[in-house]
Amino acid sequence: MIEPFFDPQQGWAGQALEHLAYRVVRENFPALDSDEVHALVVAAHRLYIERHPDRSDHLPRPTELLRANL
């Protein structure tokens, strides 16, 4: 559901659209609180990097992610 937001081919001017992943998760899983949404997006981000190491240089490493204001 949110993998395309991490894909550089889907980005805008070479920038990832992962901030949109937060919106999609919140819209599809309204029962999740903001901490759960954040944890899910960070886990998906990490999984994308592990599965696509050759297509993830544009993404910050998970340790560099700041908690988004949800």
Rank of each mutant, 00 (worst) to 15 (best):
I2P: 02
P4Q: 12
F5T: 10
F6H: 01
F6C: 01
D7R: 03
P8M: 06
G11E: 07
W12E: 14
G14P: 06
Q15M: 11
Q15S: 04
Q15G: 04
Q15E: 15
A16F: 02
A16K: 03
L17P: 01
L17K: 02
E18F: 15
E18A: 08
H19Q: 13
H19C: 14
H19I: 10
Y22H: 05
R23P: 10
V24P: 03
F29E: 13
F29S: 08
P30D: 01
P30S: 02
P30V: 03
A31C: 06
L32N: 00
S34R: 06
S34E: 15
D35T: 13
D35S: 09
E36P: 00
V37S: 00
L40S: 07
V41H: 00
V41W: 00
A44C: 09
A44L: 06
H45L: 05
H52E: 07
H52V: 07
P53S: 05
P53D: 08
P53G: 05
R55I: 04
S56Q: 02
S56F: 00
D57L: 15
H58S: 11
L59V: 03
R61Q: 13
R61N: 09
R61L: 06
P62M: 05
P62N: 04
P62G: 05
P62H: 07
T63D: 15
E64T: 04
E64L: 08
L65M: 08
L66C: 11
L66H: 08
R67N: 08
N69R: 15
N69V: 15
L70I: 13
